[in-house]
Design a protein around this nucleic acid. Sequence first.
DNA 1: GTGTATGCAAAGCTTTTGCATAGGT
DNA 2: ACCTATGCAAAAGCTTTGCATACAC
Lengths: 129, 129
Amino acid sequence: MRRKTKRRNTTQRNAIENVFRQHERPLGVDEVLRYGRRLVASLNQSTVYRNLKILVEDGWLKRISHASLGVLYERTGKGHHHHFHCRQCNRTFELPGCALKEEDVAPDGFIVEDHDIFLFGICPSCVSG
Amino acid sequence: MRRKTKRRNTTQRNAIENVFRQHERPLGVDEVLRYGRRLVASLNQSTVYRNLKILVEDGWLKRISHASLGVLYERTGKGHHHHFHCRQCNRTFELPGCALKEEDVAPDGFIVEDHDIFLFGICPSCVSG
DNA sequence: GTGTATGCAAAGCTTTTGCATAGGT
DNA sequence: ACCTATGCAAAAGCTTTGCATACAC
C-alpha cells in the first residue's frame, strides 16, 4: 500500500512519537493523549487516533490488544519479543527473546507464520516492593 | 467472589451454552447472538452480554482478545492450549498442548503465573483447499 | 499559494444500565 | 408468591468522520 503524497512532518505527530520514545513500553490511547499534551498542550484526541493509525500503517507502531487491558500501541523494530503483564501494578512490559519453537507448537497441517506470546504474573519491582 | 443467591437456570443461558457446545471454537458476541437466536428466537443482545459476563465469572467461559480479531469467548476446562488464527478463512482454532517452558521465557525477577499464545498462519483445510 | 493535518463537534459503534414485566423456583 | 433474568430503550464508552481553518511545504 503505497502513499501518493508525502507525509507532512507535524508538531503533533512528532510529539506522539516522542511520547513513545520517552516511555519504552506499550501505551493506551488515553496515555498517549495525556503524555502528549505535556508536549503540545492543544493536542486533540482525534489527532491522536489519526496519527496512531498512520504510525501503524507506516510500521512505526504495532497494535496489540488484550482481554482486560484493551488496545495498546508499541514501537516496532525492536526485534521479536513477548509481553509480560504485571497483575499487581497493571503495567505491560516487553521481554526480549523468544522461547518458542514454532515447529513444535502446531499439529501437522497447520502452517505457522507468526506468533504472539502474552505472559502474566508479578514484575520485579512489585515482587520486591 | 461468592454469590449470595442461586443462579437461575434460564432458557436463554442454556441456549448460549449450547451455542458454545455446538461450535467448538472461540466465538464473538455477534456470533453468539446469531446462533443463539436459532435456538431462542427472542434472544436479546443485552442478555447475551449479561450472560457472557456471568459465564466468564463462573469460569465456564474465558475471554480472549486480539488486535485484529476483537473479543472472543471460549469454553474453559479443556486444558491449557494455544490459539491458531487462519489468515485465509479467518477462523480461530484451539491447539492442544503447550510448547513453552515458562521458566525460560522471562528474565530473573519476573514471576510468570500464566501465559497466552496466539499463532498465525494457514490452517490445514485452506492449505489443501 | 496550495493542499494536507488539525481541532472541534457530531455521528457511529460496541457495551452497559434502568426499568417494567416475564418466568424460574 | 417472590424475586431474579429478560427485553427494550436509553445511556455511556470508545473510535471515526465532516468541515472550516491552521500550518507544513
